[in-house]
Protein backbone atom coordinates (compact mmCIF):
# COMPACT_ATOMS: atom_id res chain seq x y z
CA UNK A 1 0.00 0.00 0.00
CA UNK A 2 2.83 2.38 0.95
CA UNK A 3 4.68 1.64 -2.26
CA UNK A 4 1.51 2.31 -4.30
CA UNK A 5 1.03 5.71 -2.62
CA UNK A 6 4.72 6.44 -3.17
CA UNK A 7 4.43 5.45 -6.83
CA UNK A 8 1.28 7.56 -7.27
CA UNK A 9 2.84 10.57 -5.56
CA UNK A 10 6.01 10.30 -7.66
CA UNK A 11 3.92 9.98 -10.83
CA UNK A 12 1.81 13.04 -9.99
CA UNK A 13 4.83 15.18 -9.06
CA UNK A 14 6.78 14.08 -12.13
CA UNK A 15 3.90 14.78 -14.55
CA UNK A 16 2.99 18.10 -12.92
CA UNK A 17 6.63 19.15 -13.11
CA UNK A 18 6.86 18.11 -16.80
CA UNK A 19 3.65 19.95 -17.66
CA UNK A 20 4.90 23.07 -15.87
CA UNK A 21 8.18 22.86 -17.77
CA UNK A 22 6.29 22.45 -21.06
CA UNK A 23 4.22 25.56 -20.33
CA UNK A 24 7.32 27.60 -19.41
CA UNK A 25 9.27 26.52 -22.51
CA UNK A 26 6.15 26.97 -24.69
CA UNK A 27 5.55 30.51 -23.41
CA UNK A 28 9.25 31.30 -23.86
CA UNK A 29 9.11 30.17 -27.49
CA UNK A 30 5.97 32.23 -28.17
CA UNK A 31 7.62 35.31 -26.63
CA UNK A 32 10.75 34.61 -28.70
CA UNK A 33 8.81 35.08 -31.96
CA UNK A 34 9.26 38.82 -31.65
CA UNK A 35 13.01 38.70 -30.93
CA UNK A 36 15.72 39.30 -33.48
CA UNK A 37 17.46 37.94 -35.49
CA UNK A 38 14.72 36.25 -37.50
CA UNK A 39 16.17 33.43 -39.59
CA UNK A 40 14.08 33.65 -42.79
CA UNK A 41 16.03 30.92 -44.60
CA UNK A 42 15.57 28.46 -41.74
CA UNK A 43 11.87 29.38 -41.46
CA UNK A 44 11.33 28.72 -45.17
CA UNK A 45 13.13 25.37 -44.97
CA UNK A 46 10.81 24.41 -42.09
CA UNK A 47 7.78 25.53 -44.13
CA UNK A 48 8.98 23.25 -46.91
CA UNK A 49 9.50 20.37 -44.49
CA UNK A 50 6.21 20.80 -42.60
CA UNK A 51 4.10 21.85 -45.59
CA UNK A 52 5.35 20.79 -49.01
CA UNK A 53 6.84 17.46 -47.91
CA UNK A 54 3.63 16.53 -46.10
CA UNK A 55 1.42 16.96 -49.17
CA UNK A 56 1.62 13.31 -50.34
CA UNK A 57 0.79 11.96 -46.86
CA UNK A 58 -2.15 14.35 -46.39
CA UNK A 59 -3.34 13.64 -49.92
CA UNK A 60 -3.35 9.85 -49.51
CA UNK A 61 -4.89 9.78 -46.04
CA UNK A 62 -7.56 12.36 -46.88
CA UNK A 63 -8.48 10.47 -50.02
CA UNK A 64 -8.65 7.12 -48.23
CA UNK A 65 -10.63 8.37 -45.22
CA UNK A 66 -13.13 10.38 -47.32
CA UNK A 67 -13.72 7.41 -49.62
CA UNK A 68 -14.24 4.96 -46.74
CA UNK A 69 -16.56 7.47 -45.06
CA UNK A 70 -18.54 7.91 -48.29
CA UNK A 71 -18.94 4.15 -48.68
CA UNK A 72 -20.20 3.85 -45.10
CA UNK A 73 -22.61 6.79 -45.52
CA UNK A 74 -23.97 5.50 -48.82
CA UNK A 75 -24.53 2.09 -47.28
CA UNK A 76 -26.06 3.50 -44.07
CA UNK A 77 -28.47 5.94 -45.69
CA UNK A 78 -29.49 3.36 -48.29
CA UNK A 79 -31.06 1.35 -45.44
CA UNK A 80 -33.86 3.91 -45.25
CA UNK A 81 -33.85 5.27 -48.80
CA UNK A 82 -32.07 8.56 -47.93
CA UNK A 83 -29.00 8.26 -50.20
CA UNK A 84 -29.12 12.01 -50.90
CA UNK A 85 -28.17 12.80 -47.32
CA UNK A 86 -24.83 11.02 -47.74
CA UNK A 87 -23.29 13.99 -49.62
CA UNK A 88 -24.53 16.46 -47.00
CA UNK A 89 -23.15 14.45 -44.07
CA UNK A 90 -19.91 13.83 -45.99
CA UNK A 91 -19.42 17.58 -46.40
CA UNK A 92 -20.26 18.32 -42.78
CA UNK A 93 -17.99 15.59 -41.39
CA UNK A 94 -15.08 16.39 -43.69
CA UNK A 95 -14.98 20.12 -43.01
CA UNK A 96 -15.80 20.10 -39.31
CA UNK A 97 -13.88 17.01 -38.19
CA UNK A 98 -12.13 14.70 -40.60
CA UNK A 99 -9.90 17.15 -42.49
CA UNK A 100 -8.41 18.99 -39.47
CA UNK A 101 -8.12 15.90 -37.26
CA UNK A 102 -6.66 13.59 -39.92
CA UNK A 103 -4.22 16.30 -41.00
CA UNK A 104 -3.26 16.97 -37.38
CA UNK A 105 -2.72 13.31 -36.53
CA UNK A 106 -0.71 12.62 -39.69
CA UNK A 107 1.50 15.65 -39.08
CA UNK A 108 1.99 14.67 -35.44
CA UNK A 109 3.39 11.40 -36.78
CA UNK A 110 5.42 12.79 -39.66
CA UNK A 111 6.54 16.24 -38.51
CA UNK A 112 6.31 16.22 -34.69
CA UNK A 113 8.34 13.01 -34.41
CA UNK A 114 11.00 14.36 -36.79
CA UNK A 115 11.27 17.55 -34.73
CA UNK A 116 11.71 15.51 -31.53
CA UNK A 117 14.30 13.22 -33.12
CA UNK A 118 16.31 16.06 -34.70
CA UNK A 119 16.39 18.27 -31.61
CA UNK A 120 16.93 15.24 -29.36
CA UNK A 121 19.97 14.25 -31.41
CA UNK A 122 21.26 17.82 -31.17
CA UNK A 123 20.85 17.66 -27.39
CA UNK A 124 22.72 14.35 -27.05
CA UNK A 125 25.58 15.40 -29.37
CA UNK A 126 26.08 18.73 -27.52
CA UNK A 127 24.93 20.76 -30.54
CA UNK A 128 22.43 22.59 -28.31
CA UNK A 129 25.26 23.40 -25.87
CA UNK A 130 27.22 24.65 -28.89
CA UNK A 131 24.32 26.93 -29.82
CA UNK A 132 24.32 28.38 -26.31
CA UNK A 133 28.10 28.84 -26.43
CA UNK A 134 27.61 30.82 -29.66
CA UNK A 135 25.35 33.16 -27.68
CA UNK A 136 22.25 31.79 -29.40
CA UNK A 137 19.10 30.95 -27.47
CA UNK A 138 18.20 27.39 -28.56
CA UNK A 139 14.49 28.01 -27.93
CA UNK A 140 14.58 31.04 -30.22
CA UNK A 141 16.67 29.37 -32.91
CA UNK A 142 15.10 25.89 -32.92
CA UNK A 143 11.52 26.38 -31.73
CA UNK A 144 10.39 29.60 -33.41
CA UNK A 145 10.84 28.60 -37.11
CA UNK A 146 9.20 25.22 -36.48
CA UNK A 147 6.37 26.80 -34.50
CA UNK A 148 5.63 29.46 -37.14
CA UNK A 149 5.91 26.95 -39.99
CA UNK A 150 3.46 24.62 -38.23
CA UNK A 151 0.81 27.22 -37.40
CA UNK A 152 0.98 28.41 -41.01
CA UNK A 153 1.18 25.07 -42.79
CA UNK A 154 -1.25 22.90 -40.81
CA UNK A 155 -4.24 25.15 -41.73
CA UNK A 156 -3.09 25.21 -45.37
CA UNK A 157 -2.80 21.43 -45.42
CA UNK A 158 -6.25 21.22 -43.84
CA UNK A 159 -7.67 23.23 -46.75
CA UNK A 160 -5.90 20.83 -49.12
CA UNK A 161 -7.35 17.92 -47.17
CA UNK A 162 -10.89 19.35 -47.53
CA UNK A 163 -10.38 19.73 -51.27
CA UNK A 164 -9.03 16.18 -51.68
CA UNK A 165 -11.78 14.77 -49.45
CA UNK A 166 -14.39 16.47 -51.63
CA UNK A 167 -13.06 14.54 -54.63
CA UNK A 168 -12.75 11.32 -52.62
CA UNK A 169 -16.43 11.50 -51.72
CA UNK A 170 -17.21 12.54 -55.30
CA UNK A 171 -15.50 9.43 -56.67
CA UNK A 172 -17.53 7.08 -54.46
CA UNK A 173 -20.93 8.77 -54.40
CA UNK A 174 -20.97 9.75 -58.09
CA UNK A 175 -19.33 6.69 -59.62
CA UNK A 176 -20.48 3.94 -57.29
CA UNK A 177 -23.71 5.32 -55.78
CA UNK A 178 -24.74 6.95 -59.05
CA UNK A 179 -25.46 10.46 -57.77
CA UNK A 180 -25.03 13.20 -60.37
CA UNK A 181 -21.91 15.33 -60.05
CA UNK A 182 -23.94 18.55 -59.75
CA UNK A 183 -26.18 17.01 -57.09
CA UNK A 184 -23.15 15.83 -55.08
CA UNK A 185 -21.49 19.24 -55.30
CA UNK A 186 -24.55 21.21 -54.23
CA UNK A 187 -25.41 18.74 -51.42
CA UNK A 188 -21.80 18.60 -50.14
CA UNK A 189 -21.88 22.30 -49.27
CA UNK A 190 -25.58 22.46 -48.32
CA UNK A 191 -25.16 22.20 -44.53
CA UNK A 192 -21.87 24.10 -44.48
CA UNK A 193 -21.53 27.76 -43.54
CA UNK A 194 -18.45 29.98 -43.46
CA UNK A 195 -18.23 29.48 -39.69
CA UNK A 196 -17.60 25.76 -40.27
CA UNK A 197 -14.55 26.54 -42.35
CA UNK A 198 -13.44 29.00 -39.66
CA UNK A 199 -13.81 26.29 -37.00
CA UNK A 200 -11.74 23.89 -39.13
CA UNK A 201 -8.97 26.47 -39.50
CA UNK A 202 -9.00 27.34 -35.79
CA UNK A 203 -8.65 23.64 -35.00
CA UNK A 204 -5.82 23.29 -37.51
CA UNK A 205 -4.05 26.30 -35.97
CA UNK A 206 -4.31 24.81 -32.47
CA UNK A 207 -3.09 21.42 -33.77
CA UNK A 208 -0.12 23.21 -35.36
CA UNK A 209 0.72 24.74 -31.97
CA UNK A 210 0.47 21.33 -30.25
CA UNK A 211 2.51 19.43 -32.87
CA UNK A 212 5.39 21.91 -32.98
CA UNK A 213 5.65 22.69 -29.27
CA UNK A 214 5.32 19.08 -28.12
CA UNK A 215 7.77 17.85 -30.78
CA UNK A 216 10.36 20.52 -30.00
CA UNK A 217 9.95 20.22 -26.24
CA UNK A 218 10.29 16.42 -26.25
CA UNK A 219 13.48 16.76 -28.26
CA UNK A 220 14.81 19.60 -26.12
CA UNK A 221 14.40 17.58 -22.92
CA UNK A 222 15.90 14.40 -24.35
CA UNK A 223 18.36 12.63 -22.09
CA UNK A 224 19.95 9.22 -21.84
CA UNK A 225 21.78 8.78 -25.15
CA UNK A 226 20.46 6.65 -28.00
CA UNK A 227 17.61 5.27 -25.88
CA UNK A 228 16.47 8.82 -25.11
CA UNK A 229 16.65 9.85 -28.76
CA UNK A 230 14.59 6.77 -29.64
CA UNK A 231 11.99 7.49 -26.98
CA UNK A 232 11.54 11.20 -27.77
CA UNK A 233 9.71 10.81 -31.14
CA UNK A 234 7.46 8.05 -29.78
CA UNK A 235 6.56 10.12 -26.77
CA UNK A 236 6.03 13.15 -28.99
CA UNK A 237 3.59 11.32 -31.28
CA UNK A 238 1.60 9.83 -28.41
CA UNK A 239 1.40 13.10 -26.48
CA UNK A 240 0.56 15.21 -29.54
CA UNK A 241 -2.12 12.78 -30.75
CA UNK A 242 -3.70 12.69 -27.33
CA UNK A 243 -3.76 16.48 -27.05
CA UNK A 244 -5.07 16.83 -30.60
CA UNK A 245 -8.05 14.59 -29.79
CA UNK A 246 -8.70 16.26 -26.42
CA UNK A 247 -8.45 19.77 -27.87
CA UNK A 248 -10.65 18.72 -30.79
CA UNK A 249 -13.40 17.83 -28.35
CA UNK A 250 -12.96 21.03 -26.34
CA UNK A 251 -12.87 23.25 -29.44
CA UNK A 252 -15.89 21.51 -30.99
CA UNK A 253 -17.84 21.99 -27.78
CA UNK A 254 -16.79 25.64 -27.44
CA UNK A 255 -17.06 26.75 -31.06
CA UNK A 256 -20.28 24.99 -32.04
CA UNK A 257 -22.31 26.50 -29.21
Amino acid sequence: MTSFVEFLGTWIISNTSSFGDFIIVGMKSIRSIFRRPFDTKYFLSQCSFVGVSSVPVVLMTSLAVSMVFAVQLAFGFKQFQAEGLASQVEGLAVIRELAPVITGLMLAGRVGSAMAAEIGTMRITEQIDALECLATDPVHYLFVPRFLASILMVPMLTILSIYISFWGGHFILVNLSFQSSDFYTSEFFKLISSSDLRIALIKAFVFGVIISLVGCWKGYRTQGGAVGVGAAPTSSVVTSSLWILISDFVLTKLLLV
Binding site: M122, T125, E126, Q127, D129, A130
Partner: peptide, 8 residues
Protein backbone atom coordinates in the same frame (compact mmCIF):
# COMPACT_ATOMS: atom_id res chain seq x y z
CA UNK B 1 33.98 20.72 -27.43
CA UNK B 2 35.53 17.31 -26.85
CA UNK B 3 33.68 15.79 -29.83
CA UNK B 4 33.57 19.12 -31.72
CA UNK B 5 29.72 19.38 -31.50
CA UNK B 6 29.52 20.63 -35.08
CA UNK B 7 26.06 21.28 -36.50
CA UNK B 8 25.79 18.15 -38.63
Amino acid sequence: FQMAALFD
